[in-house]
Design a protein around this nucleic acid. Sequence first.
DNA 1: GAGATAAGTCATCGATCGATGACTACGCTA
DNA 2: TAGCGTAGTCATCGATCGATGACTTATCTC
Lengths: 203, 203
Amino acid sequence: MTYADFMNAPKRRDRAATRSALLDAARRRFAEHGYDGTGVREIAADAGVDATLIFRYFGSKRHLFDEAANGEVPEGLGAPGAGPAELADALVREVVLGDAPAGGGEHPLLLMLRSAGRPEVRARLHEEVCDRYLADMADRFAGEDAALRAELVGALLLGMGVMRDVVGSPVLPGADPDRVRALVAAMVAALEAGGRPADPTGP
Amino acid sequence: MTYADFMNAPKRRDRAATRSALLDAARRRFAEHGYDGTGVREIAADAGVDATLIFRYFGSKRHLFDEAANGEVPEGLGAPGAGPAELADALVREVVLGDAPAGGGEHPLLLMLRSAGRPEVRARLHEEVCDRYLADMADRFAGEDAALRAELVGALLLGMGVMRDVVGSPVLPGADPDRVRALVAAMVAALEAGGRPADPTGP
DNA sequence: GAGATAAGTCATCGATCGATGACTACGCTA
DNA sequence: TAGCGTAGTCATCGATCGATGACTTATCTC
């Protein structure tokens, strides 16, 4: 069977496959154009089915978005006992360099970032970032202002994702991944060193 | 005249003032809800006038957005001869700590980031970030991969703005500004040092 | 092969979107 | 104070949005 034959073949009726195709198309559309910039008809067209099926399978556009942003939040945080450098390195590979094992698309945090105009999306983003990533990162920093230093690491990683996927800067995709990881490690190490010895205004 | 009198007074007919009020309201709405999440009627209601005036004064919603994102891109880059640390420090105060002299609102880059679903907005964002900020930053770095190091500084700053304004993390607004600047300076210094000596995989 | 179940489509609704043109009323000047 | 220019408003258009219910058709079972 040729590729054309495969494409022109009458599509099988498969509820699970159609649902999955809608979910994939929604992830791509939402990630690229945001929630408000994406219509249910466009998602359905990408999936090759009628838009009505979105409401039959997901209930509403918002439920589809929630499920699209939900299912792929990776668990893969670094080893529990490791330091911030190891965690940052794992996140660099996962968020920026795209070594995420599951799903070939964008990181769900960046997907939500594109739709942060909606208050409920922003609330989820806030909860996900602060309670999940930043709290875990802060636990690995010593010192009184661990939260601030964790915030800076998180800002660096989030900013790298934004640079690559939203701004579209060609630098990060074209750079040597090991070099990127080394530079990020140097920045995190500077935070681990504390910055306080170099800060003449410290108490 | 009391405040209530001022508020209840019949509004004067002032083309320039109305245009400015529409522009201010548009900046706030677009910055918070993005382009697609903001309607012309909401902007006009915030400004206290009819939505028709938007089209009379700006031609279209998109032209209003363009002007809202245009007028306030600050020139204030650091001294031409200064190093990346000085430029980064100036940008921290401008973007993150909100010491921007003009306009009380958000940085226009973050305003555009909220509407990055639109291809033309993304194009402007790309141009503004890459050709303006990153190029200037890369010029102040020595070494072969100055572009990559400039990208990391830009990602850190952009991420800090996203953390504060989009994610809504309370850490940065509550932190001591001098401490924030010191930590960022330490991270930039680590990049200036090169990271290469600490990179065992370097050529 | 006939009937049943469910996957998929069609027609359409009400709301809201950006945008247009006709109209009203305020403020300046003679 | 009569009249003119324009700031501001009202009514409304066509397109598109998310969403609903009735309908068609493919697939499975007996």
